[in-house]
Amino acid sequence: MPAPDGSLDAGAGQGTSAPAAAIPGGTSAAGITLRPATAGQAEVAPPPVSLDIEGTDIQVDVIDVGIAEDDEMEIPTSFYEAGWYRYGPAPGASSGNAVLAAHIDIGTEQMPFARLKDVAIGTEITVGRADAEPVRYRVTDVRNEPKAALDTDEIFRRDGDHQLVIVTCGGEWLSDRADYEDNVVLTATPL
């Protein structure tokens, strides 16, 4: 609506001040959060580059992955690489689960991650990171979860206590479904 007396004419300022100039954030007297409406800088956590599960053949490179077109987590094609779900927390984060996943080899089950199901509770895991100290974890749980009932809400949670979660396939090969019955889910807590 029109300004009552013209004093609000936006042209009065000659346009010399940049509207998006930095304005200190803070709170108003009423405790309301104020901030400049400028684009924030995303926090960049050091990405994981390697995974070593003590006493196993799982000593592999880690690459970052996202979502495949069928809404499933993307998995590296190499049996000697694990994928880190880049949209969730990274290893070493203060909260939430860092999720790594890799393939086992159907039928032969000779590749490193085929042994994930045999990792003992208490085993130490080291995750190497780009431009950051490695982070270490201790295994607290290894279990098979039926794929049909996989608790993705829990596995991929982005808040709460930080854990490392490593996922692959396991259980019976179901030839009628052309898929493994289970996911193997390893959980580890920071050391």
Binding site: G40, A68, D71, I106
Partner: peptide
């Protein structure tokens, strides 16, 4: 003095539907 202002609403993410951890060796 045209400019952009930005507002971000976080926490709207969905989880992957599955983890397909097997392929032919």
């Amino acid at each position: 003095n045209l400019a952009l202002a930005t507002q971000v609403i976080e926490g709207l993410h969905s989880d992957p539907a599955a983890v397909p951890g097997a392929q032919a060796g």
